[in-house]
């Protein structure tokens, strides 16, 4: 399977569109009037204090969470109550979780081939070939026959990235991919992500790694209390933020 440039799609139109998205958990208003356009190949980093709704936002983009108001359109497909659309979007959007969520009963290779075989209906041989390519890209081909429990956290997260890539996604979502890692392992995961960014993948990352954000982000988004407080290029965001809340937040995390 090789990466195809899909025809009939306007490269200048946004690949993800969020229009007036609202969501509640019970009475708690987690997402408030979110509007966001993401262009093809764009890298967006979302940051903000915990409980600000940033994870919920990206989980809405592949319908792990259901939004109650507004529109989310991914690559021309609107996420509504049509299961077919949800399936289509999920096949095109990869996701990497904070807790890795590898399947512990399968080997690394089987983790990577499971979805291509059962969802994309690829043959086992093809799926394994593709999986090995991606495992090489994340630099752990030699661990292919091990079980996730035998790997370090950083290796597990790289497997999780490879697993998502095996589905050949258009867009990758990262939900705090380095928060559960020991400090010495963060770099190996970030390096893989930077490489991926350089290859032109559309990426939305929720992360507190500001060094990574400065390197790859095209746009920074700061969220607080369920809304987008600030949206700017990294230069403006880090040097000259508009809102007081952003300044305070940056002050808190950049001191360390």
């Amino acid at each position: 399977m090789e990466k195809m440039v899909r025809e009939g799609q306007d490269p200048t139109s946004p690949v993800i569109q969020l229009k007036g998205v609202n969501k509640w958990y019970g009475n708690f208003h987690v997402l408030r009037d979110i509007n966001l356009d993401v262009m093809r190949g764009e890298k967006i980093v979302i940051c903000g204090p915990s409980g600000s709704g940033k994870s919920t936002l990206i989980r809405c983009i592949n319908a792990l969470e259901e939004h109650q108001e507004g529109q989310i359109i991914v690559d021309g497909t609107e996420l509504n109550r049509d299961l077919k659309n949800i399936e289509k979007v999920r096949r095109e959007v990869g996701m990497v979780f904070q807790q890795f969520n590898l399947f512990p009963h399968l080997t690394v290779l089987e983790n990577c081939t499971l979805a291509p075989i059962w969802v994309r209906k690829a043959s086992k041989k093809d799926a394994e070939k593709v999986a090995m390519e991606y495992l090489e890209r994340v630099r752990i081909p030699d661990q292919a026959d091990k079980y996730p429990g035998q790997l370090s956290g950083g290796q597990q997260q790289r497997v999780a990235i490879a697993r998502s890539l095996c589905m050949n996604p258009e867009i990758m979502l990262f939900d705090e991919p380095t928060s559960a890692l020991d400090p010495e392992m963060i770099k190996e995961v970030l390096d893989v992500m930077i490489e991926l960014a350089n290859e032109g993948m559309t990426m939305i990352c929720v992360t507190h790694e500001m060094g990574f954000a400065k390197t790859v982000a095209d746009r920074m988004i700061f969220m607080d209390q369920g809304q987008v407080v600030e949206e700017a290029t990294p230069e403006v965001f880090f040097n000259n933020p508009e809102s007081e809340r952003t300044k305070e937040f940056l002050g808190q995390i950049l001191i360390h």
Partner: peptide
């Protein structure tokens, strides 16, 4: 853990899969 099902969903797998 709930994350296992979420990982499946994010890979496009259905309930029975």
């Amino acid at each position: 853990p709930r994350g296992q099902v979420e990982a499946c969903q994010s890979l496009g797998m259905g309930y029975w899969q």
